[in-house]
Design a protein around this nucleic acid. Structure first.
Length: 554
RNA sequence: UGGGGCGUCGCCAAGUGGUAAGGCUCUGGGUUUUGAUCUCAGCAUGCGUAGGUUCGAGUCCUACCGCCCCAGCCA
């Protein structure tokens, strides 16, 4: 997406433009607020692109805020990986990194304010009792017997909570709204709970922690966030969000807007499920190239731009949908096709001996790094008497649709000569182990003088001057389009062939020290990215294959 | 309906009363030293269903149907 064409505005952009036009806001301020309790995945990428993208588009700012209100689930390791992922995707947060925990003192003071206003109380009901008193979807709840404690008593009790005088679960601070409210979120929600757990940012300073609902909007208000964008499951929290903003002396009035989460078929994104895949060794880790995590996609070779383009292509709406992976694959291929340098690698080597080519001769073939982009320059390929071509590119006989090497027929060796096959050498089991062929003289960069053209082009590599490598071929992790839909057990549709390791592949010499910033296109095979975790061994992860209309037709 | 959100092509998605954009996928043709790229063409008489208002409705009204979310001291 090169541009700024007249792409229609999404509903959030319309709201922003209206707010800017009406003077409701003078500058846009957004935020990306992950909880550091796991690795970011493609769904988060959408939120990142939306929040940072909007700020950029409208000349505003976007904060990175760790929503760290639950120390029991969070770890510093996750804040580090999240920072890395956001930067890698190409975004820069405004100013310092924010933590909701930076506001714990202010939040505590506001809790006391609510108590003094008679709007919050310490409740001694335990979790089970609170659930019972809450009622259910069709029945109003009952008020807690502790709901009418005096301000003084609440103040004293809350101070004791903070001082660590109660065990976890002994009591909680609740806000007094309406136990009969049709919206369950408004039935006196808990805003502070006791957790005798150290926090990765605040250490042992606190033993009571604010809830998400109580902390989020206030964090937005403190940071001057104008548009607090989140996903659809928070729609019913909005009245609560607004309640806090209205009932507390906050410095700004932020507003929450919800859009639908990004889902991609043939994959799962729930943290719990991704963790299960890791724990049960279905994948090698959170950054396994088959994972929908940002780190997994990075290791696989997806580029930041391809992910951004994909996310932008899916639109911002309130419709629950599932985007087809083909849309993601398209974005990856689109970017890689225009930017990946070309190279040749024979994955299933078959030896070819050129009987009319001198054994000691080496010709330096020049090949462009990109066929459509001359400015990228060229590379050199040694051409020798013995070569490797792919086993799939030779057949003793074939019909006319087979555009590769066939006995007594010609084929073009990419960036080199046209050759003609003369004989197939087989082992005792009848397997072809070598092909004898001869070159057609004077066909480098030109057609044969006898007018008999080659019908196809295949890739090759010198059998004496090449580098060994392994190739990891990835396929989708699940065979089911919706692995976890309708309560299905996603573990039952794991694709047993999601990874095929091929060893003994032969790559052109220029791949001896492969680039680590972008995948290569192994011509006719696909895009391959040097694996970042295979030191010592040369391993290429197949990012994605080339579009193949041939395979689907046959 | 307890309350809330949502229903336009296989998948995303424009459309805000004037006679259904675009992208992905798919299907054909052309170019091509990657069966890639590029390029040309095709692909919703119909917008969850049924009525109604209107000269005219995906857009307004009514009823119905379907899907998703909420009963954590998770976020």
């Amino acid at each position: 997406m090169t541009d700024t064409e007249k792409k229609p505005l999404n509903f959030i952009e319309k709201i922003i433009e209206d707010d800017l036009a009406s003077g409701k806001i003078t500058q846009l301020h957004t935020r990306f607020p992950p909880e550091p309790n796991g690795y970011l995945h493609i769904g988060h990428a959408k939120s990142i692109c939306l929040n940072f993208g909007l700020a950029k588009k409208y000349g505003g700012t976007c904060n990175l805020r760790f929503d760290d209100t639950n120390p029991a689930k969070e770890e510093i390791e996750y804040v580090e990986s999240i920072k890395e992922d956001v930067k890698w995707l190409g975004f820069e947060w405004h100013g310092d990194i924010r933590y909701t925990s930076d506001y714990f003192d202010q939040l505590y003071d506001w809790a006391i304010y609510l108590i003094k206003e008679g709007k919050a109380y310490v409740c001694d009901l335990n979790a089970d009792e609170i659930r019972e008193y809450r009622g259910n979807l069709k029945q109003a709840g009952k008020e807690s017997p502790y709901r009418n404690r005096s301000v003084e008593e609440n103040l004293k009790l809350f101070e004791k909570m903070r001082a660590g005088e109660f065990a976890e679960g002994a009591c909680s601070l609740r806000v007094k709204i309406d136990m009969a409210h049709p919206n369950m979120q408004m039935r006196d929600p808990v805003i502070y709970r006791i957790k005798h757990t150290d926090h990765h940012q605040t250490g042992d300073k606190w033993c009571i922690y604010p809830s998400y609902d109580y902390a989020h909007g206030q964090g937005d208000a403190i940071e001057g966030i104008t548009h607090s964008i989140c996903t659809l499951e928070f729609v019913e929290h909005r009245p609560l969000y607004d309640w806090f903003i209205q009932n507390l002396p906050v410095p700004h009035t932020p507003h929450q807007y919800e859009f639908s989460r990004l889902n991609v078929n043939y994959s799962v994104t729930s943290k719990r499920k991704l963790k299960q895949l890791v724990d049960e060794n279905i994948v090698s880790g959170w950054d396994d190239p088959r994972m929908p995590t940002i780190s997994g996609m990075r290791r696989r070779g997806f580029t930041p731009k391809s992910i951004r383009d994909f996310v932008d292509s899916t639109g911002v709406t309130k419709v629950d949908g599932v985007v087809d992976v083909s849309q993601l694959e398209f974005a990856v291929r689109e970017d890689l096709n225009t930017n990946a340098p070309r190279a040749m690698c024979v994955i299933h080597p078959l030896k070819v001996t050129l009987t009319n080519y001198p054994a000691d001769k080496v010709e330096e073939m020049s090949a462009p790094l990109h066929p459509q982009r001359e400015e990228l320059g060229t590379r050199t390929l040694p051409f020798t008497q013995t070569l490797y071509i792919d086993k799939a590119d030779f057949q003793e006989s074939a019909n006319k649709k087979f555009k590769r090497l066939v006995l007594n027929k010609r084929v073009r060796l990419r960036n080199a000569y046209i050759i003609e096959a003369d004989e197939a050498i087989k082992d005792e089991n009848g397997n072809i182990i070598e092909v004898k062929a001869h070159i057609i003289e004077d066909t480098v960069g030109k057609n044969p003088q006898d007018g008999i053209k080659a019908k196809g082009v295949i890739h090759w590599v010198s059998a004496t001057q090449n580098v060994d490598c392994d190739v990891h071929l990835y396929d989708r992790l699940f065979t089911d389009k919706a692995p976890d839909a309708g309560g299905k057990d996603f573990m039952e549709s794991i694709n047993p062939d999601s990874l095929k390791i091929v060893t003994g592949c032969k790559a052109e010499v220029n791949l001896a020290e492969p680039r680590t910033d972008i995948p290569y296109q192994f011509e006719r095979e696909g895009y391959f990215f040097a694996d970042s975790k295979s030191d010592g061994k040369r391993v290429f992860n197949r990012t994605i294959g080339l579009r193949d209309t041939w395979a689907s037709r046959s």
